[in-house]
Nucleic acid binder design. Structure first.
Lengths: 190, 190
DNA sequence: GTCTATAAACCGATAGAC
DNA sequence: GTCTATCGGTTTATAGAC
């Protein structure tokens, strides 16, 4: 049996991904999670910001494991890179362009308006890059190059999510995937 | 003397870029532009969505000219690409990470919630890619490769804005710029 | 821990004087 | 075209019964 707090966090993470922070009301989180409004404040005394911070951290950690699992145990980094973007395109199509990055929308909203939440989004991105660079390095890529390639890959993925959600088409993501794979191959000396 | 309608659009575009759509109130647009609330509805009878659509189109066109002017008359595309990202990094630093993409925040907010505004953001991105590809093609790049490179460049730029605004650092943008320049060089056979 | 009622402020939108 | 007053609804947040 899933606890009330977990259901609140899960519902919040989904709504933040699809509608952003300002576009998501606590009433909506309450009804979607099946938890009373009072329960939200019971588990998150700091109110909306407190809840959003937790939801972003949990969603960021989930997405990290998704990335991590995908690249773990790979032998061909070039092939893995192209497949990674193909997977992102497939998820976009399967969810009618709703499920993309769980952090990006809120990150852009709060970057200039809420320093506490901005720091949370920065921490999530930093952890993604750290762990991704670690995986690349384990596969024989020099630490510096690994970190650069992961940074560019994540940036391109985020830009791809943006272009594809706006256009309701995955064409851009596939183009981006092929070119990022080419970049990885080039920088690995192939 | 600048007209009221122009001041409203300008104020709206700036607020949408920094705070997003749901985070920006009409009252705030009214006070920031110096126009009465009634004037907003006089010029934009369709209300907030009507005004937002116009502000996005105008801001998108301005940014298009910025990109267009930067790449026009260039001889070295590789050098231009790296300089383009350096310029983006400089603007972020000069504005304390407030001025980045005028479309991205709203695009992510409305992608799953407001189809009319989603289409506006899609049109802006499409025009950026069309014009950028045209410029690249004029410099001797084959139309297909030109379109691919511009798509990846814009995606990487958007991802760079996201990572840099969250981290309040331009490190990622410079890494991305160097690697995108390397990709352009590689795909141009250099 | 869960729930409802409600406060206080704010939202988008409208009416109507000037 | 400009401005103010205001409507109806929603927001975040709190109080307090159970």
């Amino acid at each position: 049996m899933k606890g009330t707090k977990e259901r609140i966090i899960e519902a919040t993470a989904g709504l933040l991904m699809r509608q952003g922070l300002a576009g998501t009301g606590l009433k909506q989180i309450s009804s979607q999670s099946g938890a009373a409004l009072g329960s939200l404040y019971h588990f998150f005394p700091g109110g909306k910001d407190d809840l959003a911070a937790d939801a972003l951290r949990v969603a960021g950690r989930s997405y990290l494991h998704l990335i991590d699992d995908y690249f773990t145990g790979r032998t061909d980094l070039v092939e893995a890179t192209e497949g990674f973007f193909e997977g992102a395109a497939a998820v976009l199509e399967a969810t009618d362009y709703a499920d993309a990055c769980p952090i990006a929308t809120v990150a852009l909203e709060v970057a200039s308006t809420n320093d506490m939440l901005r720091q949370v989004t920065a921490d999530v991105f930093a952890e993604w890059i750290d762990v991704g660079a670690q995986r690349f390095a384990e596969m024989g890529v020099s630490p510096d190059v690994a970190r650069e390639l992961v940074t560019v890959t994540i940036a391109a993925l985020e830009g791809g999510f943006l272009l594809c959600r706006a256009a309701k088409s995955t064409d851009a993501m596939r183009v981006i995937g092929r070119n990022m794979a080419a970049l990885v191959a080039h920088r690995l000396g192939r």
